[in-house]
């Protein structure tokens, strides 16, 4: 059974990018709470699953901030890679939604972005891996959803969790950030049997 925390990939979360006034206090607080929850449940290695090396750095930094001193594995999800056979019990997924959520967003305002992100949020909230696995990679690319390969991989290799929650969904700078937790997800195709607590 796997536990999953999903956090944003924004480098604003890296300690070397700290400002006197935190531009993302709520995002940082929610991400830290989710990672703290994840590591208290972990006995073995934590897998940092990201879309690129910068996302991996963000994941590692959050683990350090949470006091995790155990082993950390990294997996960079790309559209072309074959899926791993299974994921470890503890997964820290680092992924953002679209980058087209306003006129000042990196990709400008795209009216399709809210619907795309809304679909992901429903899947995260309801624990629906099938919906994540089915994200359209072409549309994700057009909407600059850099986290799509991570979301799709999670959807393909994890089964439905025993419980799911979406802690945060916002786009202060036009990029959609999420913090979510899945508890007790089985492997794909199998229902979870028990939830650890």
């Amino acid at each position: 059974m796997s536990d999953l925390a999903l956090v944003p990939s924004t480098p604003l979360l890296l300690p070397e990018h700290g400002s006197l006034v935190d531009p993302v206090p709520q995002v940082r607080a929610a991400a830290r709470r989710a990672v703290a929850w994840l590591v208290t449940r972990s006995a073995g290695p934590v897998l940092v699953l990201s879309a690129d090396p910068l996302g991996a750095r963000v994941g590692r930094a959050l683990l350090v901030a949470a006091g995790w001193s155990g082993p950390v594995d990294e997996l960079v999800a790309t559209a072309s890679d074959a899926d791993p056979e299974r994921l470890p019990d503890t997964v820290l997924a680092v992924a953002d939604g679209t980058a087209c959520r306003g006129p000042d967003a990196p990709g400008g305002l795209d009216p399709r972005a809210a619907g795309f992100d809304g679909g992901v949020e429903r899947a995260l909230r309801e624990g629906d891996p099938g919906a994540l696995a089915g994200l359209d990679p072409a549309l994700a690319g057009e909407l600059l959803c850099a986290g799509a390969p991570v979301l799709r991989l999670v959807g393909r290799v994890l089964g439905p969790p025993a419980s799911a929650r979406l802690d945060l969904a916002e786009h202060p700078f036009g990029v959609r950030y999420w913090v979510a937790r899945w508890e007790g997800a089985g492997a794909a195709g199998r229902m979870p049997t028990t939830a650890r607590g």
Partner: peptide, 12 residues
């Protein structure tokens, strides 16, 4: 020796 007041440029 001092962080910027509030830096988000290129970091979103």
């Amino acid at each position: 020796h001092r962080p910027p007041a509030r830096a988000v440029r290129g970091l979103a």
